[in-house]
Design a protein around this nucleic acid. Sequence first.
DNA 1: ATTCAACCTAAAGTGAACTTGAGATCAAGG
DNA 2: CCTTGATCTCAAGTTCACTTTAGGTTGAAT
Lengths: 157, 157
Amino acid sequence: MNTHDLLTMGDVTRRSGYAASAVRYYESQGLIRAERSAGGQRTFERSVLRRLAFIRAAANVGLSLDEIKAELDCLPDDRTPTKADWARMSKHWRRRLEEQIHALERLRDNLDSCIGCGCLSLQRCRISNPDDAAAAQSSGAAYLPKVLRRDPPRRRP
Amino acid sequence: MNTHDLLTMGDVTRRSGYAASAVRYYESQGLIRAERSAGGQRTFERSVLRRLAFIRAAANVGLSLDEIKAELDCLPDDRTPTKADWARMSKHWRRRLEEQIHALERLRDNLDSCIGCGCLSLQRCRISNPDDAAAAQSSGAAYLPKVLRRDPPRRRP
DNA sequence: ATTCAACCTAAAGTGAACTTGAGATCAAGG
DNA sequence: CCTTGATCTCAAGTTCACTTTAGGTTGAAT
């Protein structure tokens, strides 16, 4: 560990939990920045740890690296983020989180009601038999909460 | 649309919302089954729509195709699933859904408390500054809910 | 001075989940 | 019969988010 306020790659991997290859990749994609020592080795400012933590959390919320980069780009890395910066970003996240939570809750509740409804044959239960609804309406899988619906193919982050 | 009770590829793509290539892929992976017409074209039983809806929902819950296949393999496709079949599978899902929901809620609440806590500089707030906690403890990103933590590298579906 | 872990780069590889392309065949209407 | 649109197969390509490999350099400790 470096007592100086610049971090080595080793410091960063140990403290962020990311592999060096991932850290280098994030740098190559412009998500984090690194200076170089005389010999060409990376040196990081402490703030990179915050950015990496942010990246992990955002990825967990389901943002793609491109989206994360877009968010980070609004956060000038030469100054400490202000409350306004943070609030702006979190509004974004929060909406996403809430959507995910509600979508999952709806899905869960549909499961519950299906089990509870006694529709043994699964013939008329909406969740188990969405094809009829689809045939009647035209769009397939209509019972799925919108946020979770991956329309035609998945776009997978 | 076919009035017969066997479906063509076109019926299936229209009614499931999946692309033909995806349907063929799922067949190749053993997630769904198809008979063949004299000329070699696929014909599907209606139940394939249920399976496809199941696949989409399960994928949305975050199951990989392998996991989905494992679940589907417990569902004999020659008979209508019983309540027991369904209950068994849903127990699996439900736990997963609940974990995801709780994890997201915890993340959201952390965001809230961070915004509410007035830590303008983000210097001492745990969510914005997990590096200090990490340094003190040793494991990085300790504030992330366990289910969401993607430890070293991502496991990405 | 030597050693050796820690770093570096560039390019290629990985796995999941599909999609695309090429070229051939099928099925149904006119 | 002919045309047209739907399908077929098989191989190869795509995207994402990294990791692995190979081979060379750095820098702190002995």
